[in-house]
């Protein structure tokens, strides 16, 4: 004890204390937030709903109406469920920057708590898809089955390697690289914007889990052949050969036929 009390006056002691304090706060916070997460799966508290309503009125009601009933500039949110809010707000698509053919993904405007509160409020407007079960997002499903489902149901818009693709009149299906498992799941569940709804009656929760597993597998393992050139298929390959391939070859031909000094 004596040694400790002596070292207490050491100039570095303040820093050590600070670090310890910060660490403790971090651990406590992470425990608390996991607890919150667990609570989110089961349901929302009354405070969540009331806080959510305040946020909604301030940020969303202009387009979606005071009670989410919709208006000329925004669809009704009755029955879209918490999952839709978590997807739209969590990926930054809502609030929209401006009216256009499609809402773009951007950094989220609300933090995790605020998003949860908004979701809690919208969930009270009418029954709809709730937030996905954590167990369905673990990426431990059947990647092969997920791949099959993905190719039949998703690849035609999102591309076989999930690199995205064009839709009509300025709309597009975004790339799925770097999208959180939760958001992929919610998008299938709710059919945001022009994406069709893949309800649990169409693709079961296990099927969705398989799709998420497949996407996360191909994303994490990367391309065995080296750089993937955007996974855009023959167009990027052809462009690469014409620009880089022929470019290098032409540089060599010029060197080859030039006179040495």
């Amino acid at each position: 004890m004596k040694a400790l009390s002596q070292k207490r006056r050491h100039p570095l002691a303040v820093i050590a204390l600070l670090v310890m304090g910060l660490l403790l706060t971090g651990v406590l916070y992470s425990v608390a937030s996991t607890a919150n997460q667990a609570k989110a799966d089961t349901g929302f508290s009354a405070t969540d709903v009331s806080e959510g309503q305040k946020l909604f009125v301030a940020n969303c009601a202009t387009c979606h109406g005071m009670n989410g009933q919709g208006s000329a500039s925004g669809p009704s949110l009755v029955g879209v469920g918490a999952a839709a809010v978590d997807f739209q707000v969590g990926t930054g698509r809502m609030p929209m920057q401006m009216q256009g053919p499609q809402a773009y993904r951007k950094p989220p405007q609300f933090n995790a708590d605020q998003t949860r509160q908004l979701a809690a409020f919208v969930a009270t407007l009418g029954a709809g898809p709730s937030l996905p079960d954590e167990a369905m997002l673990d990426g431990k499903g059947d990647a092969t089955h997920g791949g099959e489902l993905f190719r039949v149901n998703c690849a035609m818009c999102h591309n076989a390697a999930a690199a995205g693709g064009a839709l009509t009149r300025g709309k597009f299906a975004p790339s799925l690289a770097g999208v959180e498992a939760k958001h992929i799941y919610e998008a299938m569940e709710t059919g945001p914007q022009n994406m069709p709804v893949f309800s649990d009656a169409n693709i079961s929760p296990e099927g969705k889990r398989d799709i998420v597993t497949f996407l996360k597998t191909i994303e994490s393992q990367g391309s065995p052949g080296g750089a993937d050139l955007g996974s855009l298929g023959p167009v990027s390959e052809g462009l690469f050969m014409w620009v880089a391939g022929l470019g290098v070859i032409i540089a060599f031909t010029i060197w080859l036929t030039s006179r040495t000094s």
Partner: peptide, 18 residues
């Protein structure tokens, strides 16, 4: 690809089944 039959009630508005 699963080959499971589809009930009319499964097909909600906005969904697309292959």
């Amino acid at each position: 690809p699963d080959g499971t039959p589809i009930k009319a009630s499964d097909v909600t508005i906005g969904s697309a089944f292959h």
